[in-house]
Design a protein around this nucleic acid. Structure first.
Lengths: 120, 120
DNA sequence: TCCTTGGATAGATGTTCGTCTAAGCAAGAC
DNA sequence: GTCTTGCTTAGACGAACATCTATCCAAGGA
């Protein structure tokens, strides 16, 4: 359950997208992360977990916020997990999820246009 | 050609995703933007345009970077256009595209976790 | 032990997406 | 006018995706 993919987007770590053209590999890596966030349910899940008290939330906290079945929520959590955006670990009866803030921070950095010259 | 959708993601303007839970509407708006970026070709297009000298690039500059047909590139540019990430205008023979930096900046702000308390 | 509860997996189904070929439109050269 | 070039639109098709129901596994309490 706590088995995660290695942290991704390391290659696309720091260079803002607007400073120099992304390589093919960087683009593929980043696209996986954006694809994981390209769904309203997953965005809200991510936001619910990230903003939850203690920085973590159990699935029981999440399911009630949606009009979807348990398996569907479970599927979306799996997508977020496999993209490296969140981790989950079981403590007793419940499984707690928390976000990988470094990944969000890295994405934020990639999208920034601060300090980017308009002309090269 | 220069007809664009109104700038989106205004509602999701400033509150970082990790500060408070996204509303359904905010999540839907943001998901459209992330969906537009959830493809390696579109990410590279965005990056090529954003990092191009003068802040703009014509389609002829873009097509050569990919092993795809013209219509496919055109399709991806249309997705980026309709999401509000880029605009294109024709000047004489060529069409020039440039990115809406405000949108990128806003997305970057939404993803930031700087200054976010881990506990509420 | 067996039952209950929390949560994931398996498999099916309708929809969306990425790519292509073919055709169309706009601008300039002749 | 007609041709060429740059780019978009239209339509088709296979792959990927979001959701569901049914099933299964793990942990805790009787």
């Amino acid at each position: 359950m706590s088995k995660q993919l290695p942290l991704v987007a390391m290659d696309a770590c720091c260079a803002p997208l607007a400073r120099e053209p992304l390589t093919q590999d960087q683009a593929v890596e980043l696209s996986h992360l954006f694809k994981a966030m390209a769904d309203p349910v997953r965005l809200r899940l991510l936001s619910l977990i990230a903003s939850h008290a203690g920085g973590e939330a159990c699935v029981c906290d999440l399911t009630d916020a949606f009009d979807l079945t348990g398996p569907t929520i479970s599927h979306h959590l799996k997508v977020l997990r496999e993209s490296g955006l969140i981790t989950g670990d079981r403590r007793g009866t419940w499984i707690y999820y928390r976000v990988h803030r470094e990944v969000l921070t890295r994405l934020s950095a990639v999208l920034t246009t601060a300090g980017e010259p308009v002309t090269a």
